[in-house]
Design a protein around this nucleic acid. Structure first.
Length: 422
RNA sequence: GCCCGGGUAGUGUAGCCUGGCAACAUAUGGGACUGUGGAUCCUCUGUGGCGGGUUCAAAUCCCGCCUCGGGCCCCA
């Protein structure tokens, strides 16, 4: 017996149908916002990812050498590949450039619910604009994607790294000090932040104002923290515009300002946001994104970029936890030949139905009618066509409605119209 | 990488503590039923995650590993 590799999964027909439904739903939302889908390879050069995220992450990357000695890696995420693609081949495309993707990614991590070694991400990047309306649209689209697939209970949090950085500057905190604070802020351990600040030379009063600011969702309170002429004021008014547009024009109202969003890496600039599904427990983040700069890191001409990624597997889990009613995908018709002699004619009829776009299955086990009906029933097929010599003499078949339990004799020429009318 | 809890036919479970023929339900194939389903009955097939130890004897006790899950770490 062989076993699945740790952290990977098989998907049954039912699961695959669910996943395909959600995938198509997500992709159509991207498209509705004018985004175009792209694809990149499953593996890339290892340095693409280490350049972006540092050598540390190599522990969590599926890295390998190929037979030519090239250092390669299964992609752990898709932003870097998309930006590589952009810098290599798409820099001259008209702006803004709106790209989305859907694909599997790989991380060597301890698996648990909502975290797998092979997982799927849907996401997008927008290149060449940093207007408030572009960012508001980005956030609204992330929110809309999750709402459109049918999630009821999600939480959208919006922050801004430039503003956080300005607070550090204003408080006169060194890079080292910031490194101590950021993990605590990220984990919302504000009491620990507060008690650490005096050690870094911050007065109790400032420390209080700082930790209050981190926890407020009132943008005016955040403004009060800053002196009039700091760059943060511009960033704040930008953020205010984004939030206004979200609320009044995109009609996305249930979000929170959360200044304590830090996100992992330092190529994020300005806007950051996250969407959680509280039902999921420990691994509850469904979506994360923001503005970032990878283009210059990858050798391209400087241009604003922003994007987000949605955890596809977690979205499915959240839908299941919320007991979402996934549509069922049934076979429309099951054809039963009553005897061996009827098989040829049955196949012929099946083929005609298939040409008409009717999902048609056919008995392939030469089973009796009773068993065949039982099978059709267990597969939730709605209609059964029974093909036997009696009806065939009049160019007819028996069409049986499995739900109602009644049946009628129908001319072969009329089957399609009969089926389509129901 | 750390702590904790699981793993018994395809699926869901019992038995484990206190070692003694592996059980039940359901599903699958065949049949009762040679032209009519969901019911009923009969029947075939299919089981201890893997490896080692203790023992006359291991699903059961012990050890290691694999794997799933809860919580950490991390989360690009």
């Amino acid at each position: 017996m062989f076993q699945l590799p740790r952290g990977t999964r098989d998907f049954t027909p039912e699961e695959t149908e669910k996943r395909r439904y959600v995938e198509e739903n997500m992709l159509s939302t991207f498209k509705s916002f004018g985004y175009k889908e792209i694809q990149t390879p499953t593996f890339e050069t290892l340095e693409l990812f280490t350049a972006k995220s540092g050598d540390l992450i190599i522990d969590e990357i599926y890295a390998f050498s190929d037979k030519g000695g090239r250092e390669l890696a299964l992609r752990p995420e898709l932003t870097a590949p998309v930006m590589r693609f952009y810098v290599e081949k798409m820099q001259m495309e008209p702006k803004p450039l709106k790209l989305f993707y859907f694909g599997n990614c790989f991380r060597y991590d301890r698996p648990q619910k909502g975290r797998y070694r092979e997982f799927w991400q849907a996401g997008c990047e927008i290149v060449g604009t940093n207007t408030p309306e572009a960012y508001a649209e980005l956030v609204a689209m992330a929110y809309t994607i999750l709402k459109n697939v049918g999630l009821k209970n999600i939480k959208l949090n919006i922050g801004n790294l430039n503003i956080i950085n300005s607070t550090f500057t204003q408080l006169g905190l060194s890079k080292d000090d910031q490194k101590k604070l950021l993990p605590l802020i990220d984990k919302s351990q504000f009491d620990d932040v507060f008690s650490l600040l005096p050690d870094l030379g911050i007065t109790n009063d400032s420390a209080k104002k700082f930790t209050d600011m981190l926890q407020t969702s009132d943008i005016n309170k955040i403004k009060e923290f800053f002196k009039e002429d700091t760059p943060a004021i511009d960033e704040l008014s930008n953020m205010e515009k984004i939030l206004d547009l979200l609320k009044s024009s995109f009609n996305v109202k249930d979000f929170q300002i959360k200044m304590s969003i830090v996100r992992g890496l330092d190529y994020y600039k300005g806007l950051v946001f996250e969407i959680d599904a509280p039902v999921l427990g420990a691994e509850k983040q469904l979506c994360g994104g923001g503005a970032y700069d990878l283009v210059t890191l990858f050798g391209g001409r400087e241009t604003p970029t922003a994007g987000f990624a949605v955890g596809f597997d977690r979205t499915i889990l959240a839908l299941e936890t919320e007991q979402f009613a996934f549509p069922s995908f049934k076979t429309d018709v099951y054809i039963i030949p009553v005897s061996k002699e009827m098989i040829g004619k049955s196949i012929e009829i099946a083929q005609n139905l298939r040409k008409e776009g009717i999902l048609t299955d056919l008995d392939l086990l030469r089973r009796g009618i009773g068993k065949s009906l039982k099978y059709a029933n267990s597969k939730n097929v709605e209609k059964v066509i029974i093909i036997g010599p009696k009806e065939l003499e009049n160019d007819s078949v028996t069409l049986r409605d499995m739900k109602a339990g009644d049946q009628e004799v129908v001319k072969i020429a009329d089957i399609v119209s009969k089926l389509k009318n129901n």
